[in-house]
Amino acid sequence: MKIPILMYHQIDEPPPRGTALRGLIVAPSSFALQMRMLRLMGYKGLSMRDLEPYLRGDQQGKVVGITFDDGYQNNLVHALPTLKANGFTATCYGVSSMVGGTNAWDAGKVAQKPLMTQQDWLAWHGAGMDVGSHTQTHANLTELSNEAAQQQIVQSKDELQHVLGAEVRHFCYPYGWFKPEHEDMVRAAGYVTATSTRRGRAQAGDNPYALNRIMVARATNPLQFAAKIMTRYEDCRQ
């Protein structure tokens, strides 16, 4: 059975037209509608932690993974209440050295937005949500030496676990870029999965360290959203 893993970034009111990367900001009302649609279609929205048995093939069911990249504070403010209202869980991938900071890796390209503070992360995790790693600095691993890439992967896990006081089991490649050696590093660091930006739905038996995801953008309309979940729409666009 196919398992769609949704990829979001920010849940917030979109900025004016012409703003760089505006498509990555999904309005809270759109997100609420999408989560309601999932529930009405009979799907259960799950964090990567809760998705583990389905990815292994130990369990089957109508499930959808829900992930947020970067750890924006607006995920806590706008997404968390909607997730809880629908009985869903989700994973938010944090940039460990920028807890309480902003999306500095985008400086000069897009507006700076606050990232979750330590208290925010504790609130997210305490609400039953999952926390994953997105490296220490949102690094493009393909531009780093193997030693530097390994530090980004290993240290981010340690730092986030220190923030949470709980295990961090899942990883996400910044920008979606990685090489086979990075998969090996993620595995050796003790992560259970790693997600990419490659399009398509996942299924049991897929390489857990190169999982496809489905991008949900500002302009994704309800019909497209349903097609991404229930049909081969995304699978054909790998």
Rank of each mutant, 00 (worst) to 15 (best):
M1Q: 14
M7S: 11
H9F: 02
E13W: 06
P14R: 14
P15W: 04
R17W: 07
I25S: 10
P28N: 07
S29P: 09
A32R: 15
L33I: 05
M35L: 09
L40G: 07
L40R: 15
M41N: 11
Y43W: 11
K44T: 08
G45C: 04
R49V: 00
D50L: 06
P53S: 08
Y54L: 03
Y54W: 10
R56Q: 13
G61L: 08
I66L: 01
T67V: 04
F68M: 01
F68V: 00
D69N: 05
D69Y: 00
D69V: 00
G71L: 00
G71S: 05
G71V: 00
G71N: 05
Y72A: 00
P81W: 07
P81D: 07
L83D: 00
L83F: 03
A85D: 10
N86H: 15
F88G: 00
T91H: 03
C92T: 02
Y93W: 10
G94L: 13
G94Y: 04
G94R: 04
S96A: 14
G100I: 02
G101Y: 00
T102L: 01
D106Y: 12
K109T: 11
Q112G: 10
K113A: 08
P114F: 06
L115K: 02
L115D: 00
M116R: 03
T117D: 13
W121S: 00
W124Y: 03
A127F: 05
D130M: 03
S133P: 07
Q136F: 08
Q136V: 08
H138G: 08
H138F: 04
H138R: 13
A139N: 10
A139P: 06
N140T: 09
N140I: 10
T142I: 08
E143R: 15
E143M: 10
N146P: 07
E147V: 07
Q150K: 14
Q150E: 14
Q150C: 09
Q150I: 03
Q150N: 13
Q151L: 07
Q155K: 14
K157Q: 12
E159G: 06
H162W: 14
V163S: 01
L164V: 02
L164D: 01
V168I: 10
H170W: 03
H170L: 03
P174V: 04
Y175T: 06
G176Y: 01
E181N: 10
H182C: 02
H182M: 03
M185S: 09
A189H: 12
G190V: 06
A194Q: 05
T197R: 12
T197S: 13
T197D: 08
T197H: 14
R198H: 11
R201I: 05
Q203Y: 14
G205D: 07
G205H: 09
N207A: 05
P208C: 06
L211I: 04
N212E: 13
V216I: 14
A217H: 15
A219M: 11
A219K: 15
T220G: 05
N221K: 11
F225D: 03
A226P: 08
A226E: 13
A227R: 15
T231M: 12
T231D: 08
Y233T: 07
